[in-house]
Computed example of a mutant assay.
Amino acid sequence: GALAAYAARAGVEAHVFMPRDTPRANIVECRELGAHVTLVEGLITDCAAEISRRKANEGWFDTSTLKEPYRVEGKKTLGYEVAEQLKWQLPNVILYPAGGGTGLIGMWKAFDEMEALGWIGQNRPRMFAVQPAGCAPIVRAFEFGEESGAEVQDAHTIASGLRVPKAIGDFLILKILRESNGGAIAVDDEEMIRVAREVGTREGLFICPEGAACFAALKLLRSAGKIASGECVVVFNTGSGIKYLEAYDRGVGG
């Protein structure tokens, strides 16, 4: 949606490729903003393959994850905002929903920059990547001590932003998780829906499944003793539940 909006404002033609079963709100949003939307049978990796096949002949600039330098620079602002809002004291733990994982990569870069500027010290948060049980290549690679992850076959989850069978920057993500003494954890779809409903009824926030996965992961990590009472924890919610009405409507206990 953001790409389509910025392209429209700049008067630039945008081509957006999505899996055919992408949540309807995302498809409609891009079309209404003037983008040329192509629905692809398969996963986001199949969309990337189609773009790669056509971009040279079409003269397209590829804005896919880590195919250009600007997304990490944009995601880097997450790290700056966390530090600023916590009065330049980084939290003990950050939980982030990792599909392509550029948020983790960007924040880690931001922390190094802020230390070089003298704004923060050497301490870093323990970084945790949260993934759905049906598509958790980072979790598996972390648990098996691998430097990069194998592509997940039959990837499935209601959290479409996390249905990435293999992240192009997985080696960077895994390095960050290990350097920070953090980790990776998987959450199943039913728990995402249950926790999203819990957050909604208690806090008045209609969060996306990706964010719900992080709140669920927080509970699991607390139970496992990996996050102690009194520690400062930042949990990222990366979107609105409005984009997932079909998933929540079909959810458990609905």
Rank of each mutant, 00 (worst) to 15 (best):
G1F: 00
G1C: 11
A2R: 09
A4Q: 01
A5T: 13
Y6L: 11
G11A: 10
V16D: 05
F17I: 03
M18K: 08
P19K: 11
P19E: 04
A25Q: 11
N26F: 14
C30V: 01
C30D: 11
L39A: 12
I44Q: 14
T45K: 00
T45W: 00
A48S: 10
E50N: 10
S52N: 15
S52Q: 13
R53Y: 07
K55M: 13
F61S: 03
D62Q: 00
S64I: 04
S64H: 10
S64A: 12
L66Y: 14
Y70E: 10
V82M: 15
V82A: 06
A83L: 06
K87D: 15
P91C: 02
V93M: 04
P97G: 03
G99P: 08
G99M: 04
G99Q: 07
I105A: 09
I105G: 01
G106D: 02
G106V: 01
M114W: 03
A116C: 01
L117K: 09
G118F: 03
W119D: 12
W119I: 12
I120K: 01
I120L: 12
G121Y: 04
P125Y: 05
R126C: 05
R126H: 13
M127E: 01
F128S: 04
Q131D: 04
P132C: 11
P132D: 03
G134D: 08
C135R: 10
C135H: 11
C135L: 13
A136M: 04
V139G: 08
E143N: 12
G145L: 09
E146P: 05
G149A: 15
A150S: 11
V152I: 15
V152S: 10
Q153K: 15
P165D: 12
A167H: 01
G169Y: 05
I173G: 07
I173L: 09
L177S: 08
R178N: 02
S180Q: 09
S180E: 07
G183P: 13
A186C: 07
E191I: 06
I193R: 10
V195P: 09
F206N: 07
G211Q: 05
C214E: 05
A216I: 02
A216E: 07
A216T: 06
L218Q: 07
K219N: 13
A224D: 13
G225C: 07
G225A: 07
I227S: 08
G230V: 01
E231V: 03
V233P: 14
V234D: 01
N237T: 15
T238L: 00
G241R: 02
Y244D: 03
L245F: 11
Y248D: 06
G253A: 15
G254T: 09
